[in-house]
Amino acid sequence: MCLAIPGKITTIESKYDGLVQVAKVSFGGIIKEASLEMVPHAKVDDYVLVHVGVAISVVDEAEARQTFKYLEQMGEVAEELNIHGFLPDQKEYS
């Protein structure tokens, strides 16, 4: 099953001569890259839902925390982030 995982944008950079905006997104301390093509208005410190490497929507912090908590309870966080055996630091979402 593919789910969108909430994370916090830590940095944004332009790639390919400025044609593509890519963010570093923190998922409870685990950093992954995500394309911002679907949410060009997203900025550093925003929370976004990321699906297969693409940020698909900006969400508020409360929604991000709650969604992350639900996914963790369902056991989906480790699978979606490909980190079996290591769950993210919960400080960002508690």
Score class of each variant (00 low, 15 high):
Asp46Trp: 07
Glu72Asp: 14
Arg65Asp: 00
Val39Lys: 08
Phe68His: 12
Asn82Ser: 07
Val59Thr: 06
Tyr16Met: 13
Tyr70Asp: 12
Lys8Ile: 04
Met74Ala: 15
Glu61Met: 07
Gln21Arg: 14
Asp46His: 12
Ile56Gln: 08
Met74Pro: 00
Ala23Asn: 09
Phe86Thr: 09
Ser35Leu: 10
Ala62Tyr: 11
Lys8Phe: 08
Gln73Trp: 00
Lys43Met: 03
Glu72Tyr: 06
Val50Lys: 01
Ala4Thr: 06
Pro6Gly: 04
Ser26Gly: 09
Thr10Pro: 01
Glu92Leu: 11
Gly29Ile: 10
Thr10Trp: 02
Tyr16Lys: 13
Thr11Asn: 11
Glu61Gln: 14
Lys32Leu: 11
Glu76Arg: 11
Met74Trp: 08
Ile9Leu: 05
His41Phe: 14
Glu76Cys: 10
Ala55Met: 04
Gln66His: 14
Leu71Ile: 00
Gly28Ala: 08
Lys91Gln: 14
Ser94Glu: 14
Tyr70Ala: 09
His51Gly: 04
Gly28Leu: 08
Lys69Trp: 03
Asp46Ala: 03
Ala23Ser: 08
Lys32Pro: 00
Lys24Val: 05
Tyr16His: 12
Val48Asp: 01
Pro88His: 07
Thr11His: 10
Ile31Asp: 00
Pro6Asn: 05
Cys2Pro: 15
Gly29Ala: 10
Pro6Ser: 06
Tyr16Pro: 00
Glu80Asp: 09
Phe86Glu: 11
Asn82Gly: 14
Ser26Gln: 06
His51Ser: 14
Glu33Gly: 05
Ala34Leu: 06
Ile56Pro: 02
Glu76Leu: 15
Asp89Ala: 11
Lys69Tyr: 05
Tyr47Pro: 03
Met1Gly: 15
Ser14Asp: 13
Ala23Tyr: 11
Ile12Ala: 05
Pro40Leu: 06
Ile83Leu: 10
Gly7Gln: 09
Tyr93Gln: 03
Glu79Trp: 06
Glu37Ala: 13
Ala23His: 10
Leu81Thr: 02
Gln90Thr: 10
Gly28Lys: 09
Gly53Asn: 06
Asp89His: 13
Ala64Asp: 01
Cys2Glu: 15
Val50Asp: 02
Lys43Ile: 04
Ile30Glu: 03
Glu37Gly: 12
Thr67Arg: 15
Val48Asn: 04
Val44Lys: 13
Tyr16Gln: 11
Gln90Arg: 15
Tyr70His: 12
Val52Asn: 15
Val50His: 01
Gly7Leu: 08
Val52Tyr: 15
Ile56Phe: 02
Glu92Met: 13
Glu92Asp: 09
Glu79Gln: 07
Gln21Ser: 12
